[in-house]
Design a protein around this nucleic acid. Structure first.
Lengths: 331, 331
DNA sequence: TTGTAGGCGTTATCAC
DNA sequence: GTGATAACGCCTACAA
């Protein structure tokens, strides 16, 4: 690959003139500029961002860490990030953690070594966030935050979303509501459960332990769990799933049990299920403001990159929206 | 961020000793090594991959260019790429083209400037591939190829897949088969149509022009197109969609028209539709070997990166598989 | 086993 | 308006 020296030599100017043409074209004479441009063309010269990064101490790269691009929620979020980043001349390095804290930490260190200008992360462990906070990296937590860690974050108001969904069911007459939640300490999950509890409390409905179901955030586990639930005598009239994949498993289990939606059971969940637009009835869901989650997070990160000294913590909490659907019925 | 000099100074050794510890630990004495490691820890030192790349002329980065990560097919492909790449110490830069040739070329040049070691691309234009072929970049075309361009590629046998799907319908007794294809010159689309034609010809079924429908590869267009199709007197008994998003649109149009699947109309398509596992009946589909498409492409690319001189063109053509489903009925 | 000098491709600094 | 030189952080010779 041609270097700036080759260009300079062939154009019979000094290296620095070529460099200036690239970075500050106005101070190079038109004649010289034209000559150099031609040589660049001939040599198909592309300035090395590597070398440039080395001296500028800036890579114009943002590292993105998320659980899994296969998840509709995350890949659609990623596109909004990309659009904003790309419009501001930033490239994206992408890594998936599969909710594995070890992978996560590994990737963070990798980004550090790559000297990315900033990190956008949907963290799966408080440890990573702590590491980031102690590091010199600019970063923004997305979708999940940790009380004890002071950092910028952009999240959805999971509490409000779950509260609204629960209230929606209650107002339709449901009291026997099962929730499908994760077993761990993930921020959204914990908040959502708090929202659920709060709504139940507000309407003085007692929680039924056998309706509070912990499982992995995937179809398989949800399918099994719901299948068991539906075998019991004591059935819920509605199921609220904290995750769309678990809802997919739920739907299958419900159909396998020969029950109809919403005739025998009402369903609602967080995020749209994959293929939500062809599935009938439309599953009611709490829709997160994905576009803002992507755009705002990236905007804030770039802001911080440009002005790292700012001590002020940027906290963005976005309201989700309830999208009603035929999957919930009045009883 | 601490540099190798800081580490060397604090550990009271020379820079090169630190460097060696990083690159060839065995030739550094255990005592010195320990001392240096401790300092690294203290300083939270991460060697700069930027500087390293500059001197090694190697970035350990692979650039990935694809139409859209939101598409299930591509994001699942990407994960296989990531797994393989990550296991071989390569990082991934990701860009989406939205099938826009201008964006595509822009991203290729960007990768060139970033000095990525190689490019994995699902190209949307022959021009990009030509540019790549003329450039000094290592690259592998994925899912799509161009006859006139000599390059490594890993693709699915689209012709065979479409042939099999069509034959499947024919053997079920269908002759009035509509195809939903793209309007452009995209390799998979062209090949699939050839496969469709070949199967029809084999069974001496005449093509009906009004059953050959061109549209964009999205739900909306497919929905509209199929809606119109179903309003006509002359209806097909089966629809074969070349893309899963178009199939989603088709399903909606079919349901809107009050038709039942597969009672009134049989459906089959390429790739799994989003939410395929909860939709009933299961839509029959031609399943591409995504894992191999990801793994093989990455493997070949890395092979070429390690041995760029090899002139031999690596061509991998993978067979897709027909996954039957309740969406097709015998007539 | 450890160290010195030079170079990777660019830009910043100071000169002309 | 243009140019020489040092610096960015690391590694590859070659020496000791």
């Amino acid at each position: 690959m041609a270097t700036i020296f080759d260009v300079a030599a062939k154009a019979k100017v000094s290296v620095i003139t070529v460099s200036r043409l690239l970075n500050n074209p106005s101070i190079v004479s038109a004649k010289t500029a034209e000559k150099i441009f031609k040589v660049m063309e001939d040599l198909n010269y592309q300035p090395s961002e590597i070398a440039r990064s080395l001296v500028k101490k800036k890579t114009n790269t943002i590292g993105v860490i998320m659980p899994d691009v296969k998840n509709t929620f995350f890949n659609s979020w990623f596109r909004f990030v990309e659009d904003y980043a790309s419009a501001h001349q930033y490239n994206l390095l992408l890594c998936n953690t599969d909710e594995d804290p070890a992978k996560e930490l590994k990737y963070i260190k990798l980004f550090q070594a790559q000297r990315v200008d900033g990190v956008l992360i949907v963290p799966c462990s408080a440890k990573s966030a702590e590491y980031l906070a102690k590091s010199n990296l600019n970063f923004v937590l997305v979708d999940r935050m940790f009380e004890k860690i002071k950092s910028d974050f952009v999240i959805t108001d999971h509490f409000a979303g779950a509260f609204e969904a629960t209230e929606y069911l209650i107002k339709l007459g449901h009291t026997r509501i099962a929730v499908l939640k994760g077993a761990g300490e993930l921020y959204p999950d914990v908040e959502r459960f708090r929202g659920f509890e709060a709504a139940m409390k507000k309407y003085r409905i007692e929680l039924n332990d056998s309706f509070i179901l912990n499982c992995r955030f995937d179809e398989l586990c949800a399918g099994k769990t719901v299948k068991e639930l539906l075998r019991k005598k004591d059935k819920p009239t509605a199921i609220f799933s904290f995750n769309s994949l678990m809802m997919a498993g739920t739907i299958k289990a419900v159909e396998d049990a020969g029950l109809e939606i919403p005739k025998h059971i009402s369903l609602i969940c967080f995020d749209k299920i994959p293929g939500y637009n062809i599935f009938t009835p439309r599953i009611a869901s709490i829709v997160q403001p994905i576009e803002q989650l992507g755009r705002e997070a990236t905007r804030i990160l770039i802001e911080r990159i440009k002005n790292p000294s700012t001590g002020r913590q940027r906290k963005v909490v976005l309201k989700p929206k309830l999208a009603a659907g035929g999957s919930c019925r009045k009883i």
